[in-house]
Simulated scan of single mutants.
Amino acid sequence: MAKCNPWLIRRLCMIMRQNFAKSCEDKLNDQINMELKACHQYLAMAYHFDRADVSSPGIHGFFLQASIEEREHAEKIMKYMNKRGGSIILSSVPEPVPQFEDTMSALKHALQMEMEVNQHLLDVHALAGKENDPNLCDFIEANFLQEQVDGQKVLADFIRQLERAQTDVGDYLFDKYMISGSMHGNGQQAKKH
Rank of each mutant, 00 (worst) to 15 (best):
D123P: 04
Q112M: 14
N19P: 06
C13M: 06
E147D: 14
D157C: 03
I32Q: 01
N135D: 00
V169Y: 04
L122H: 06
Q161A: 09
T167R: 11
S92D: 15
D138S: 12
H184L: 07
G170C: 07
N82A: 05
P98K: 12
L145E: 04
K83D: 15
I15C: 00
V97I: 13
E147V: 10
F49C: 00
A142C: 11
G61D: 13
H40K: 01
L90H: 14
D30C: 01
M115E: 14
S180I: 01
A126T: 11
L8P: 00
S92Q: 13
H193W: 13
N82L: 12
Y42V: 02
L127M: 10
A38M: 10
A38V: 12
F49W: 06
P6R: 06
G181S: 06
V117H: 04
V169S: 02
G58T: 05
F158Y: 13
E72L: 07
H120I: 09
T167W: 09
F20K: 11
D53M: 09
E75C: 03
Y177L: 12
F139D: 01
K22W: 00
H73Q: 10
N186D: 13
D168Y: 08
F63P: 08
N143R: 09
D102W: 06
T103H: 05
I89F: 15
K37Y: 14
D30H: 04
E95G: 01
P98M: 07
I88T: 04
D138Q: 10
Q152E: 15
Y177M: 14
M81S: 02
I68L: 14
L28V: 00
F62W: 14
K79R: 00
H109W: 02
H73V: 08
F49G: 01
Q18F: 15
I88A: 07
I59D: 03
Y42K: 02
P6Y: 13
Q166D: 15
I77L: 14
A2T: 01
K79F: 00
L136H: 03
A52W: 08
Y177N: 12
M16T: 08
E131M: 13
K130M: 10
N143P: 02
E116F: 02
E114F: 02
A110F: 07
D157L: 01
G58N: 09
E163I: 14
V124G: 05
S55F: 13
H48G: 05
A66Q: 10
M178F: 06
K79T: 01
L136P: 02
I9G: 04
G86E: 05
K27P: 01
L145R: 05
